[in-house]
Design a protein around this nucleic acid. Structure first.
Lengths: 343, 343
DNA sequence: TTGAAAGCGTTACCAG
DNA sequence: CTGGTAACGCTTTCAA
């Protein structure tokens, strides 16, 4: 090869190249590539062959420019404290959405909205039209996400009931209240009478709902509902809450901890103070995302089908994007008590 | 408003609109928007005002079409077993990269490459040119990622030494071997003589290197290196390994566990079998990503600055994308022993 | 069923 | 420093 002829500009193949090689027009190639409606079998075959031979891949930007779609959807995580990202719950949402997008052309764009900075960064991004849809998997009262999306044309779905306009926004959720009831009733049925709860952040729905479930069950049983520690879904937070709890209510004999991660911290403090689980204090957690199996004793907990739920949420979102349907009512997943040795 | 005049096609504002409003040409608007070189202060101001008034946002697709950049970078996670995604390590990589992209126009595209499926899915995606760069944060011998990227023009960076062509691929890493030595030497110095190790997967560099560090330290001290359990970085895996270990080597008095998550499982089994930590068996973990604080006793471990490391990796990658420089040599972060009560 | 042609909104080159 | 003009690669009418 002559030195100067050897580098014919390593340009990626385009539609034109495919058209040339397959002997049809650009238009036909385009149709063949997208679902092939109104394309003769011969043309289709020729195009397929050319695509394979050339290693052709559509230029998303060019397509996007004309279709006005981006083929990408955002997973929005709004967390004030970065540490929280450590929760296996988020890993679950990632897996669920990832699974839903698996056989599609959609790509997953991760949007982490730290609240301490200008909280509109994520909102701005979403509004700019850089994604075809948004799935919000964590969201707090003051992040403005639900209000913004309720007033936007961007298809969205919340995992967990949104703070504003839950009637106009589509969401999936688990039965947090029911799950918390289940947990609390289990403690009651095994003989606990002085039952406390360690809650998640109460500026978000899950924290609030699980607290409500505990209250309801306690009320129904005629038990006092004064032993409440508000925490943050982290294991450190759980430890702090447990310490406070033992100081203020030394007589507790059961604790409903609103997440397994917090329960780890609670159990550690209990062990430190010489309280045996379940003999002295019974514990029920919430989430069943793996950590419940690695505590000693293993944790009795409430199931939380995050992966299935976010996968469904992903499908619902894709569906809305494709059909343009209006938001449907919420889908609520049931929860169950998951047996362990801590209660 | 007359019914028919009231909907003037709610088209997003474009460069043309901005140009019209600010009284300059499209070209000038474009320059003003991108770094404003060769733009008079007046023009700049006029454009800024128009942009603000119109709420103009660049159309990424159109820009991408001509610049041939996508302004997005992929975070690639290649894990055979989905469960592993639960590791706080991944949350750390997400935070690090996310932080590096924070003040840029780049978006983070998450690519989860399950290995059981056609393992080329991720590779194909990367090769198609849909991202400007890739950061691989988990990678195993058979996933083909390192070989593919070594032969590709796509700028990439590995977090953790790549399996193939570590000399041609850029990477950042922690001193796994050194950290493991540190841990093991600490066990030795506190009097342990029968020291086992529970390793990570040995088809990936961290698992291998931490095992090597243990071997070196043991060899230097003239101790036997036969108590090795190969595991998988999960806490369940750690539990299984511990059970096997206690059966085969009941006389162990120290264990270097290659990750804190596994250490949780190990400690649970130890507790079950009535072995006290640290009195009967001393434990040192690896990672210090939070879980070390929530075990009882708290875990002595080795620091792993994932967030800082991935953040730096992100900057290095952006730098390469911007300048086109060739891959630099690796950057290795030192590790330290982090005190706890388990050793 | 096919192809020609007209954009989609931006950047980049060049002359002024 | 500025503005005109030509791409960038694709989809989508509209005729044929």
């Amino acid at each position: 090869m002559a030195p100067n002829e050897s580098r014919p500009a390593p340009r990626d193949p385009t539609l034109v190249d495919v058209a040339a090689l397959s002997g049809v027009s650009r238009s036909t190639v385009s149709r063949a590539i997208n679902g092939g409606s109104k394309v003769s079998p011969e043309a289709q075959a020729a195009v397929n062959a050319a695509v394979a031979e050339l290693g052709y891949a559509t230029n998303r930007a060019a397509r996007s420019l004309v279709t006005r779609r981006t083929d990408s959807i955002a997973l929005v995580i709004s967390e004030p404290d970065e540490k929280v990202l450590t929760d296996p719950y988020f890993a679950g949402t990632l897996r669920g959405l990832s699974a839903a997008l698996e056989d599609t052309e959609f790509q997953l764009i991760l949007l982490i909205a730290r609240r301490d900075e200008d909280n509109s960064r994520a909102a701005r991004y979403l509004r700019r039209g850089y994604v075809d849809g948004a799935m919000v998997v964590s969201h707090h009262r003051d992040d403005g996400l639900s209000a913004m999306l309720a007033n936007s044309r961007l298809p969205s779905i919340f995992v967990g009931r949104p703070w504003d306009a839950p009637d106009r926004l589509q969401y999936v959720d688990i039965d947090n209240t029911g799950g918390a009831r289940l947990a609390t009733e289990h403690l009651i049925s095994t003989g606990c009478r002085r039952i406390a709860t360690v809650t998640g952040p109460i500026d978000a729905a899950p924290g609030l709902d699980r607290l409500r479930g505990w209250r309801e069950a306690m009320g129904d049983a005629g038990l006092k509902t004064d032993a409440v520690e508000i925490s943050d879904f982290t294991s450190m937070g759980g430890a702090r809450a447990a310490a406070a709890l033992l100081n203020e209510h030394p007589d507790v004999d059961g604790i409903f901890v609103a997440s397994d991660l917090m329960a780890v911290g609670v159990m550690a403090v209990l062990a430190e103070r010489g309280r045996r689980v379940p003999d002295d204090v019974r514990i029920v957690g919430f989430d069943q995302l793996g950590v419940n199996e690695s505590t000693r004793p293993t944790l009795t907990t409430v199931t939380n089908p995050v992966v299935a739920m976010t996968k469904l949420a992903g499908h619902l979102l894709l569906d809305r994007i494709a059909t343009g349907h209006r938001p449907q009512g919420p889908v609520i997943f049931p929860t169950e008590l998951f047996p362990g040795d801590s209660a």
